[in-house]
C-alpha cells in the first residue's frame, strides 16, 4: 500500500505542473525547440535584477551587424557563483548558446558562454560550472 502510494505520488509529481514557487518562467519567453549559437562582441551590460543581461554585436553572412540581447540569472545569484560585474566586459569576444525568444525579437537566454581563451561557463552547480574567472 505504502509503495503504491509512493509510486502514485512520484508519478503525480512528475506529471503535475505544480511547483509552489512562481519563478520567472523562461519557457514563457524563450523557445526550447529553437536553440541558437551566437558569436559576437559584447557591447553593453545590464547588471540589474531580477536578470542580468548583456548585448553582443553579431555579424551576419551579409556583413550586416545585429545587436542581440542575452539574458542571465540574477546578479545576486551570479555573484554567489563567483561572478563579478566585469566578468563579461564590453569588447569581449564571446560565443553564446541559448534559446531564441518566442516573440522573434533579437533575444536569447544564455545557457553557455565561451570566452576567447576557451573557458566555457554553463548553468549548473557552482562546484562544477563555476564563474568566468573560476579555475
Amino acid at each position: 500500500m505504502r509503495s503504491r502510494l509512493l509510486a502514485a505520488s512520484v508519478a503525480a509529481f512528475c506529471m503535475a505542473p505544480w511547483v509552489l514557487f512562481a519563478h520567472h518562467s523562461f519557457t514563457a519567453e524563450f523557445d526550447a525547440t529553437k536553440p541558437v549559437t551566437l558569436k559576437g562582441t559584447v557591447t553593453k551590460l545590464e547588471w540589474t535584477n531580477p536578470h542580468a543581461r548583456f548585448f553582443i554585436d553579431v555579424k551576419g553572412e551579409d556583413d550586416a551587424v545585429v545587436n542581440w540581447e542575452l539574458e542571465l540569472g540574477s546578479p545576486n545569484t551570479l555573484l554567489r557563483y563567483g561572478w563579478k560585474r566585469d566578468s563579461i566586459k564590453v569588447g569581449d569576444q564571446v560565443i553564446v548558446e541559448g534559446y531564441l525568444a518566442k516573440d522573434n525579437s533579437k533575444m536569447a537566454n544564455a545557457r553557455t558562454v565561451q570566452f576567447p581563451d576557451g573557458r566555457k561557463v554553463s548553468a549548473g552547480s557552482a562546484s562544477d560550472a563555476g564563474a568566468p574567472g573560476a579555475k
Partner: peptide
C-alpha cells in the same frame, strides 16, 4: 530536460541553495 529556466546561467535557486548549504 530543462525546467522553466531553460538552463539559463545563474538562474537556479535550488542548486545555489544546495551549494550554499554545502
Amino acid at each position: 530536460a530543462w525546467g522553466i529556466n531553460l538552463g539559463t546561467i545563474g538562474d537556479d535557486p535550488v542548486t545555489l541553495t544546495n551549494d550554499m548549504r554545502a
